[in-house]
């Protein structure tokens, strides 16, 4: 069955079914995804990341409601980890989103990481295309709970939000390199808690230092306190996302971000194709070189170069 026309009309069942094809990344679905790709480029893609338990899912739901209430269509891709052992997963972001699950302007899809580093699977980026082509104005990607330097979301989203929760660290955490540097907008969640002001001050302090050195030009990252429980701060957050979007467009920054996204996607797919080829066709070479490494006959770097040379030589 051709799912593309239904997707372009914004119909739920074809959208959901094509998302499954994208997730499976099977060859049969490639022509459909290529047709979908021609219709993309209208949606604003917002990445929401942060450590586990920082409140990403809950805030994603309240933010989606804020946008949906202003008449915009919101697609949510909620990513949770796959088991490194069985490959299975428990995708539980949806239970934090029960309040918006029935909103006709909101579509929620849960996805597993499938072992992708940085928490973004290839299927996730194809899923953004499908929701974009289906007419969703805003697409929220909620990443897996990340550590300190899984920053891949930057290469997939137009606006990056980093959620920090109060009580998880001091100002030394805030000046470390890594995830905090990638945010266009910082959110301090759980602002119904009394220690949240300190977290807001520490983040603002960190950003101020960035200012002093004048490394940051153009958009200054914002810090916004939210309480999903009391639904506070979300009007400001939605308005700030819109302002960031207009900043990207008027400053020309959007062109750079789009280029980065294209590059990431292409390289990611190339990477997975190479990996697949290695495993399907070169298992012999791999095990032979591993054997040599274990006998200390060859160093890992030299082994990797030999493996690549063997592929190129054929």
């Amino acid at each position: 069955m051709d799912l593309v026309p239904g997707v372009l009309r914004g119909e739920t069942v074809p959208i959901a079914r094509l998302l499954s094809c994208a997730e499976a990344a099977d060859d049969a679905s490639r022509p459909a995804l290529a047709r979908i790709f021609e219709h993309t480029g209208k949606a604003h893609v917002v990445g929401i990341t942060g450590v586990p338990g920082s409140g990403k899912s809950t805030l994603t739901a309240v933010l989606a409601e804020e946008f949906a209430n202003s008449g915009r269509k919101v697609g949510i891709i909620a990513v949770d980890p796959s088991s490194p052992f069985s490959g299975g997963s428990i995708l539980g972001d949806r239970i934090r989103m029960a309040d918006i699950a029935m909103n006709p302007n909101v579509f929620i899809r849960s996805m597993a990481t499938r072992g992708a580093m940085g928490g973004l699977s290839r299927g996730c980026l194809d899923a953004v295309d499908i929701l974009d082509a289906a007419g969703f104005d805003i697409i929220l990607i909620e990443t897996v709970g990340v550590g300190q330097d899984e920053i891949e979301i930057v290469q997939a989203a137009h606006t990056v939000i980093v959620a920090s929760a109060p009580g998880l660290g001091d100002e030394i955490q805030a000046i470390k390199a890594g995830i905090l540097e990638i945010a266009d907008i910082h959110i301090v969640t759980k602002c119904d808690r009394s220690d949240s002001n300190r977290t807001i001050l520490e983040l603002k302090g960190m950003l101020k230092m960035g200012d002093l050195t004048k490394f940051v030009e153009g958009w200054e990252p914002k810090v916004i306190g939210t309480s999903s429980l009391r639904r506070e701060g979300f009007e400001e957050l939605a308005a700030t996302i819109d302002r960031h979007r207009s900043y990207l467009e008027t400053s020309g920054e959007i062109v750079k971000r789009r280029r980065k996204i294209s590059e990431t996607r292409m390289l990611k797919i190339a990477e997975s194709l190479v990996r697949k080829r290695f495993y399907e066709e070169r298992l012999g070479s791999i095990s032979e070189l591993c054997g040599q490494m274990e006998r200390k006959k060859i160093a890992p770097d030299a082994a990797a170069r030999q493996l690549l040379a063997r592929i190129n030589g054929e």
Partner: peptide, 16 residues
């Protein structure tokens, strides 16, 4: 049951 299915390599969406 969700945990059993996960350990069998199945994606489980827990809807609460």
């Amino acid at each position: 049951v969700a945990r059993v299915l996960r350990d069998a390599g199945i994606d489980v969406i827990y809807a609460g």
